[in-house]
Structures are given as C-alpha cells and as structure tokens.
C-alpha cells in the first residue's frame, strides 16, 4: 500500500468538499422552498393549478438527473432568446446550471415527502385543534407542521444523502467537486482502485455525519415515542 500516494490524493480531494457541500446546501435550500410551493399546488383544489404541479413532479422524478443537467447546461444555450436575457450570465456558468438542475430535481422529491408527511398527520389531532379554536396558519404552525416534520424527517434524511451523492454528476459539466477532482486524478495516474476508494470513503464519511445529525434531531423531536423505541 502506497500510503504517501493515498495521503496525497486524499488532501487533493478534500479541496473538493466545500464545493460539494455548497452545491448540496444551496440546492437543498432552494429545492425545499420550491417544494413547499409545489406541494401546495399539488394539493390545490383547482385543477388548473394541480395539473401542472403534478406534471412537474412526475417529470423531474421520472427522468435521470444527468439528462436534466445536460438539458440545462447544453440545451438552454441553444435558445437565442435566453442568451439575450439577464439570466444568461448565470446559465452560462456550469455552477449555476448544476445548482438549478439539482434544485429542481430535489424539489420534486421533497414535494412528495412533504405531501406524504402532511397526509400522515392524524385527522383526529387536526380536528381536536379545530375544536379548540385553531384554524389557518395557527393550526398549521402549532399542530400540522410540527407533526408532519416528525413524519417526514426520516425520509428527508435519505433525500439529503441522495443529494450529496447526486452532486457528483456536476463533475460531468466541469465542476471540480469531489468527483471532479477524483476523475482528474484517475485519468492522470490510472491508479483507479486507490483513488475511487478514497473518494468513496470521503462520501461515506460525509453521509455518516448527516445520518448522525438526523438521528440526533429525530431523537430530540420524538420524545413522545421514547417508550416505543425501547
């Protein structure tokens, strides 16, 4: 085992972590905001709102993320009107294309997670809140959302982990996050086993931290299930 080499590539790959985390964090944040809107639209009473929102969810869940990245990075540039517009300086950058694709993609999944979590709130507890004079935002803020968060959190932790791994696709459009650096190292040295193993270990470590963080959060929120867990 060439520990010196491993140490060297490890240090180089660590430089990709900030970009990986940045892509993940921005996309998750934007995706979550978007997901809330999409979820509200999906559960809307008006068919004209519900239809497009449902189509949006199906479209982004039903097509590969890699294709979405390609379409946004290579495809949008071919639309002349877009090239003249004020957003072109952003869409020209692979960074923002990756953020856009990742955000849209995670928003579709997250919208479904939110929908499931809200639907799983026991109707009886909502009725009890109504019968105590709660309605509108107060009812959501005090009862529905706190319960839904507890239902949705375990599923959402998987989505976060998926997203950390999904940022590796951004390497295809020239971004030097962990996988981008890894790929460059591999094509420079051809020592693929060491290189891809170390990269895998870095992703594993990152996701382990995420898992732990969610586990702690869940434990904190789910005091009411303490007995059932035992």
């Amino acid at each position: 085992m060439d520990w010196l080499f491993i140490k060297d590539i490890f240090h180089q790959m660590l430089l990709g972590i900030p970009l990986t985390l940045q892509l993940t964090a921005i996309s998750l944040l934007a995706g979550f905001v978007l997901a809330c809107l999409v979820q509200a639209a999906v559960t809307s009473r008006h068919g004209l709102v519900r239809g497009p929102a449902t189509a949006y969810v199906e479209l982004f869940r039903g097509t590969p993320l890699l294709l979405q990245i390609f379409l946004i990075y290579y495809g949008l540039g071919q639309i002349g009107l877009l090239r003249q517009s004020f957003i072109w300086p952003f869409l020209r950058e692979p960074y923002w294309c990756a953020v856009l694709a990742l955000s849209l993609n995670t928003s579709a999944y997250t919208a479904e997670i939110i929908r499931g979590a809200v639907q799983a709130v026991p109707p009886g507890e909502i009725e009890a809140a109504r019968s105590c004079g709660m309605s509108g935002l107060l009812l959501r803020r005090r009862i529905i959302w706190p319960i839904a968060v507890r239902h949705g959190l375990p599923v959402y932790s998987s989505e976060v982990i998926q997203m950390i791994k999904a940022t590796s696709l951004a390497s295809i459009i020239t971004l030097n996050e962990i996988t981008g650096i890894t790929y460059r190292l591999a094509s420079d040295t051809y020592r693929v086993i060491e290189i891809f193993t170390v990269a895998g270990a870095i992703y594993l470590a990152l996701n382990f931290v995420v898992s732990m963080a969610f586990a702690i959060l869940e434990r904190f929120l789910n005091g009411h299930l303490a007995d059932r867990r035992a």
Binding site: P122, G124, E125, E127, A128, A129, I147, L221, H224
Partner: peptide, 8 residues
C-alpha cells in the same frame, strides 16, 4: 379517541 396531540 381522545385526540391528544401526540408530540406534546
């Protein structure tokens, strides 16, 4: 069914 809020 009582309908107490389980998380409180």
């Amino acid at each position: 069914n009582f309908c107490l809020w389980q998380h409180m």
